[in-house]
Design a protein around this nucleic acid. Structure first.
Lengths: 155, 155
DNA sequence: GCAAATTGTTAATCTAGTAAACAATAATCA
DNA sequence: TGATTATTGTTTACTAGATTAACAATTTGC
C-alpha cells in the first residue's frame, strides 16, 4: 500500500498496525483475492463458486440428499434450494425420488453436468496454479494444511 | 464430517476429493469459521467485522479521507458511506471538512470511538487467542505470513 | 479559463446467506 | 396400534455486504 498524498501531518504510520495482526482480517482479504480471480477466470455464465462446489460434490457423491449436501457445504438447506434449482435448470443435475424415503430428493449429475464440472475443475486448477505460481509446492501444502486446521476449529 | 446414514450403495468415498484440494474452497470455509466466532464474541450490538476494521483504521490513521479508507479496506467508496454513517450515528467518528480541499471528508475518531475500538480490539484478540489455542505461535505466524503472501497476489 | 479528474453521495441492483413456517413423510415408543 | 416427535424439501421474508452508474461540488492540469 503506497502513500500517495499526505493530507495532513497527522497521517503517520502507527506504531502497531493492529488490524493487520488479526488472522480473521487477513483471511478475509486473502479470500476476496482468490475468489475474485476465480470469478474472473470462470466468469461469463460459468460457475459461481458455490454452484461449482455443489456440483462438484454431487459428482463425487452421487445420490447425495439435499440435506446431506447442505451439511457438506456448511450452509442451510433452505439456501441450497436455489442452487440446485439453477443446476437443474441448466441440465447439470436431476432430483430423483428414492423409494425407501419419499421425503428425500437424491441428486444425480447428468452427463452434461459431469462434463461441465470436469472442464470447470480443469479451469479452476489452472486458475490456482497461475495465481499461486509464486508459491513453492511446500508453501502451498503448508497453507492447505493450516487452512484445514482452521476448518477443524469449527467442529 | 461423519457419515450418519448411507442412503445407497453409490454413497462411497471418492478416489480424489477434488473440491477439498482447492485453496479457494478451504480459504472460504476457514474464513466462515473465524468470522462466525468473531460475531459470536463481538455480537449483540457490538461491531460487525467491517465496522471494526473501519474504525480501527480511523483510529490508526486519524484524518484519513473516505476514499483513502475505502482503498485500505479494498472496497468501493460508495460502500463505505453506510459504514461511516453508522459509526458517526453511534458517536464513534466525526466527518470533518478540511480547508485545503472542500471535497474531502476527513475522518476523526471521537473519545468514545477510541475507547470502543480499544475494548473491541481486546475482545477480538481474546477471541483469536481462544479460537487458535491449538495452534503453536509458529503455526500462527506461518499462517499469517502465507495469508499476507496471498494478499500480495492482488496488487 | 476550460476540460478532465476527484470526492462524497444516492439509487438501483445483485449475491449469498439466514430464520421461520409449512406439508409430506418417517421414526419412536407407550 | 396410534399419538407424538423428527426430518426433508420448500417458500417467504429478511439481512448483510457489496457493486455499478450517475451526480453535484470542487480541484487539478494544461
Amino acid at each position: 500500500m503506497t502513500r500517495e498524498k499526505r493530507t495532513s501531518d497527522a497521517d503517520i504510520v502507527p506504531a502497531q498496525p493492529e488490524l493487520e495482526e488479526f488472522i480473521g482480517y487477513n483471511l478475509k482479504r486473502a479470500y476476496v483475492i482468490v475468489q475474485s480471480d476465480f470469478r474472473r477466470v470462470l466468469g461469463e455464465d460459468g460457475f459461481s463458486p458455490r454452484a461449482f462446489s455443489a456440483l462438484s460434490l454431487v459428482v463425487q457423491y452421487p445420490n447425495i440428499t439435499q440435506t446431506g449436501l447442505a451439511k457438506m457445504l456448511g450452509i442451510e438447506r433452505s439456501g441450497l434450494v436455489a442452487i440446485v434449482d439453477d443446476l437443474e435448470q441448466r441440465g447439470f443435475v436431476r432430483r430423483t425420488h428414492v423409494p425407501s424415503d419419499r421425503r428425500v430428493q437424491a441428486l444425480l449429475p447428468t452427463k452434461a453436468g459431469a462434463k461441465a464440472i470436469a472442464d470447470a475443475t480443469d479451469a479452476v486448477r489452472a486458475h490456482e496454479n497461475t495465481l499461486f505460481a509464486s508459491f513453492t509446492p511446500e508453501e502451498r501444502s503448508t497453507l492447505m494444511a493450516l487452512l484445514l486446521r482452521v476448518r477443524e476449529l469449527g467442529e
